[in-house]
């Protein structure tokens, strides 16, 4: 069996054991203000930032989008839709999907979300406009800190999203909106 022969070959060939370095807890970079750094990095990755001071204002923002005739799927409210509700909708036609972001990363402007926030995995990718609601106090400095908080064993799928989907495969010209969302908005909640 290939499994055994591969393992046997590794054991026969592997170099002498080398130790692990001491883990890095946090980066040395000094940022004046985490929120400010996060906003800078997110913007440079093509994200739109809207600072908002209450969940009610988030609702108002969503209602405004709907009144513009947009199809909005909002999963940020307390009574989240059930799997059944989700399965009967054709998300390929959704204009806007609004999800809760768990953590923001100041060093790169990315937001972590996992399966619990999206219910079905294709949701953040299929929509043309993804909106993430993120509390300002959930912005951490760097990836070391964030990974310490992420519990991978208790989720099936999780993703860092840093802006709208993009490509530079044609002569390195940056084009926003490759296969996923064309717009990416972060509603920063204080």
């Amino acid at each position: 069996m290939s499994r055994e022969s591969i393992l046997k070959s590794i054991i026969a060939n592997k170099p002498a054991k080398i130790g692990l370095p001491k883990p890095i807890e946090i980066s040395n970079n000094e940022y004046r203000d985490l929120t400010e750094k996060f906003i800078d990095m997110a913007k440079s990755a093509g994200s739109e930032i809207v600072e908002i001071d209450s969940m009610e204002k988030v609702m108002e923002w969503i209602i405004r989008q709907k009144s513009d005739g947009k199809v909005v799927f909002d999963l940020t409210q307390e009574s989240v839709p059930t799997q059944q509700f989700l399965s009967i909708h054709d998300f390929s036609n959704s204009d806007i999907v609004v999800l809760r972001g768990q953590m923001g990363v100041a060093e790169n402007g990315a937001v972590w979300i996992d399966e619990h926030d999206m219910l079905i995995r294709k949701l953040p990718f299929i929509t043309s406009h993804l909106v993430l609601v993120l509390k300002k106090n959930k912005i951490l400095k760097d990836m070391h800190q964030v990974y310490n908080q992420i519990d991978l064993k208790n989720t099936g799928f999780g993703v860092f999203i840093a802006g709208p989907s993009k490509t530079a495969d044609i002569e390195q010209s940056l084009v926003i909106g490759a296969h996923g969302p064309i717009r990416h908005t972060i509603l920063l909640l204080s």
Partner: peptide, 15 residues
């Protein structure tokens, strides 16, 4: 780039 646009972590298959 400071991070790729999508950094996807696959742990379990979807239902």
């Amino acid at each position: 780039q400071p991070i790729t646009n999508y950094t996807s972590h696959f742990q379990k298959p979807e239902k």
